[in-house]
Design a protein around this nucleic acid. Structure first.
Lengths: 171, 171
DNA sequence: ATCTAATCGTTTAACGTTAAACGATATAGG
DNA sequence: CCTATATCGTTTAACGTTAAACGATTAGAT
């Protein structure tokens, strides 16, 4: 956005940092989406499978919180995954409002197969930065993210942000 | 995503950097969307207005390239902006395939009014980082973005990435 | 000059996303 | 017990996004 904006040095510095974070994230997301598209998975679908793989069976609202997405969205993501037989819904007898989502054997095999190249791709991309640079980038992004949430508190703000705020945004 | 992934130190470092960039960008985007929603604008609508404001009248494909969005999408963005009378389409006599998009006086007033608080918001968020940190963040993100595009070349990849690759991704 | 290529904007179908309203179920207070 | 409130998952409507097919128009090649 800074293209031709006239502002103080402080403003231009902030704008430049802002757009470079945005673009880097967009580029990363496109790269991941392209990689997952080969397996017929969207990023959210992958995220759901990965969460189930590492955390065990989860309810939909837990997945929603994990992925920072709305409940309605997760209904769709899970429905599509179920169509492909990667997961199954299972009513919880103890609390019949809940659906416990668990991987099918095929789903488990899929995510186990997909995960290593996925991690390799991320690691490969990150190799453009030195170890020290990666850690520096992580620290700066965390600091920025935390600060941004403070700024937002109180305003009418999307569910994703609220969800992130509710739990400590992890790591 | 790293939640509970077992991997080498190198992999975990890369994954942590990756998710922190993603989350920071998501948080920033939500903050901007919330701010613009008050004016009834989406991020893309704002981006189009801003481009027209700083660069003068543009054709739709130029706006698409600027915002890294597909042509069909820009058709919709411009259509919605035109409904609200912020911009106007104008056929170019010299090349009748082209539509030159220009701000209406009201549109110019709007973006002129919106821009300062928008910049102030970004500057305010970025104040969570020192000047030196902002510059460091910018540098790291640029380096990462450039590297990622190299990795992508050759694969079937979204238009946005291709567009970014085609022109030098500016700055 | 004519025919072929490429470019521009539009339309369509499909998907992901959100917010809001809803029905089913559970929990807490009287 | 019974009612009010809260939670969970679903549905719907609306929007942004992409890719692909399309018609109109231009530019290039022969």
């Amino acid at each position: 956005m800074p293209s031709h904006y006239k502002g103080t040095k402080t403003e231009l510095r902030a704008l430049n940092a802002y757009i470079n974070v945005s673009r880097a994230a967009n580029t990363l997301e496109s790269a991941m989406a392209a990689q997952l598209a080969a397996q017929g998975l969207s990023i959210s679908q992958f995220g759901a499978l990965e969460a189930l793989y590492h955390l065990g069976p989860l309810c939909q609202h837990e997945i929603a919180a994990k992925l920072l997405k709305s409940g309605g969205n997760i209904t769709m993501v899970i429905t599509n995954l179920e169509k492909q037989r990667w997961i199954k819904r299972q009513r919880v007898p103890k609390d019949r409002r809940l659906l416990r989502i668990h991987l099918t054997p095929a789903g488990r095999r899929l995510i186990a197969k997909i995960l290593p190249p996925h991690v390799a791709a991320i690691t490969g991309i990150m190799r453009n930065l030195s170890d020290r640079e990666q850690e520096s980038l992580r620290t700066l992004c965390r600091k920025l993210g935390r600060g941004t949430q403070k700024v937002l508190s109180g305003h009418g703000v999307s569910r994703a942000v609220n969800a992130a705020k509710a739990r400590g945004l992890s790591r």
